[in-house]
Design a protein around this nucleic acid. Structure first.
Lengths: 166, 166
DNA sequence: GTCCATGCAAACCTTTTGCACTATA
DNA sequence: TATAGTGCAAAAGGTTTGCATGGAC
């Protein structure tokens, strides 16, 4: 993965978005933007609150939620739900703006990938079902190499044989 | 889409799962199973509670949640999160056990599709990233034909031009 | 009699909202 | 100075849990 450029560039970009929409640029908003743009992880709100605090600026949880909403609206940040019961956020300014995710069910590691075949899948689906498709979400779940190596297994306790039902 | 077979077959299947795991088969569990297996929709918990009640049997919300957990564990039912803030459930006994979803952002219509290309995508990803992939989730979001025809538009209010930042 | 399910209400967790106060432009 | 942001606490909404009751074996 290519390292992202200087975060401050994107903080300015967000500032421009705010100004364009007649919204004030505040220290809290800048600090939250700096935190999200400065990390290549998929951050939870809790993590963002802590990181902002570590950066020396205090921002309440409500402000973080409200600012994340703006960041998502500006399309500079993507919101994800990996089924953990809460959302995660990542900036969209890396080398691959439209990527998907591999998620390890054991250690929660997230690996990003880009697969060009999906574009053709999307096109053929749009045609076949008369849908105008604007976005997709693809997540592959399983075990990463390390967890496989360490002998982790995924518990499978579904029905033994669905055929034998009579 | 091929019509699902008689739901009672799957209710029995669930009963077998329960017995195999030393769990009692109760009227509530049967009623909930009958409801889920008897519908080809993607049902919310609220809808399931109402449908069960309509069927003449009373089951508390907690019981519905607990039974759905068992149904998902048995792998007879799939749990979905389409980003509505709550989960939906559908039985996995239709003609296509492993399908994905097209979701209309305007009217919330859900269309199922099966795309064989995804299997090869999954295989190549597993190889490329050393992942052992057990399941995936693919959702395509956009507008269905009806909503496009009726002139519905999706509001796009992101930044105007990300390049012009200096 | 033991084990477990049920149902109600309370608890929980993330996210949203109301409101008094403060800062921005 | 007008407008909007902030932070706290409360509310909201879906889901989970504790506990007393009740049924099945």
């Amino acid at each position: 993965m290519i390292r992202s450029p200087d975060p401050s560039l994107f903080v300015r970009l967000f500032g421009r978005y705010l100004r364009e929409n007649g919204l004030p640029v505040t220290p809290q908003r800048e600090a939250i933007a700096r935190t999200v743009f400065g990390s290549d992880d998929h951050l939870s709100v809790e993590e963002i609150v802590d990181l902002v605090r570590t950066g020396g600026i205090s921002a309440g949880k409500a402000t973080v939620y409200r600012t994340l909403e703006l960041l998502v609206k500006s399309e500079l940040v993507a919101e994800h739900d990996f089924g953990e019961g809460f959302k995660r956020y990542e900036h969209r300014l890396s080398s691959e703006p439209n990527h998907d995710h591999l998620i390890c069910l054991n250690c929660a590691r997230v690996v990003e990938f880009k697969n060009p075949e999906l574009d053709s899948v999307e096109k053929s689906l749009a045609k076949a079902h008369g849908f105008y498709i604007t976005k997709h979400r693809l997540e592959m779940y399983g075990l990463c190499l390390e967890c496989v190596k360490s002998g982790t297994e995924i518990d499978q306790d579904g029905i033994t044989c669905p055929i034998d039902t009579v």
